[in-house]
Design a binder for these strands. Structure first.
Lengths: 190, 190
DNA sequence: GTCTATAGCTTGATAGAC
DNA sequence: GTCTATCAAGCTATAGAC
């Protein structure tokens, strides 16, 4: 008790993350989330008006850590940009190789909510992807390559393609093939 | 009445397709599918032992038409292979531009069922993607390009990346950017 | 092979005490 | 702000008639 509102809220979001990401959004009940967060359902509904709001809060909370992890995967790789982009995909492939990895949470949310186009979580997913695309564009532009916006977008397409195909085939080799193509996209031609 | 077993079964699958693809798998109840198919739930359970079996049958029924449509999009485009690959993505972008399009049914099923790794529908999704990848490899190999398997895989990564990103952003321009990159991947270098 | 009817459980959300 | 208690509706699946 005497736990302030902020930490209760975060505890609920953390429980929602474990279940929404681990089992799927529609498969996770408010009962299960309440149990995992060690609060009652009534407390969840005090902090979030509805399950849809909790879904949106879950995705919003994933934005920053996901962005930071991927940016670090690129930044911590030594070498020029093509080498760094390859490093990003190699780190991704490594992360995919654990049983805990179950796809990109943003793609999976968009997939589950495809029948509800006006869902508040959809714009959060879109903004997250656009944010990383813009970050990549800056990195590419800094090398002096032409068409940095197009190249950044194509790297993103390979990144999400890797997430989709590894989810389907359960084979991180697809991420490495994507990394090769992505590195070539940011390589200066002679 | 006097409808044979085959057509009842197909009618159920057709109703399941409309709801599973349109609203999502977990969001579609057996009640709703029965109503749409104009049969009772008991009839569905006569033809399919469980909802999971119906999900697998739904995906299996999507394999051939999806494959044929995409193959036709490439075959019906005039020109060399890079032009045909670009045509494939242009046709895809056109299809995505309708309100009925709600992503790739196979990716979405894998996303919804990510929490159930042993689900029978998962291997159907994997086989479908591998089938088109192999078909692309044949087309690429026929042009004499090196590493046809790798190039086919990379085109697939861009294809699924386009499906994922257009689902998230609702902007077919992403599919065209993917098409440019895919065409470059199957272009002979000087 | 298809029906009516229902079991048995889970769902998202709410009432009202403290 | 968090609790106990509960609702009405929805869910997958089954029993048994014809």
């Amino acid at each position: 008790m005497a736990r302030d509102a902020r930490s209760t809220r975060e505890q609920i979001i953390q429980a929602a993350d474990a279940l929404f990401y681990g089992e799927g959004i529609r498969s996770s009940s408010m009962d299960a989330i309440a149990a995992k967060a060690s609060v009652t359902k009534r407390t969840i509904y005090y902090h979030f008006p509805s399950k849809d709001d909790l879904i949106a809060a879950y995705l919003a909370a994933r934005d920053e850590p996901t962005f930071a992890r991927q940016a670090a995967w690129l930044d911590e790789t030594k070498g020029d940009l093509p080498a760094q982009v390859l490093g990003l995909f190699e780190n991704l492939a490594r992360a995919m190789n654990t049983p805990r990895w179950k796809g990109c949470g943003f793609i999976r949310a968009a997939a589950e909510l495809a029948g509800t186009p006006a869902h508040p979580a959809r714009k959060i997913a879109s903004a997250h992807k656009k944010r990383f695309e813009a970050w990549l564009e800056d990195r590419i532009a800094a090398t002096g390559l032409s068409e940095p916006a197009l190249r950044a977008r194509q790297v993103m397409l390979l990144l999400d393609g890797a997430a989709a195909q590894v989810l389907i085939h359960r084979d991180p080799a697809y991420a490495l093939a994507a990394g090769q193509a992505a590195a070539a996209l940011v390589t200066k031609t002679a």
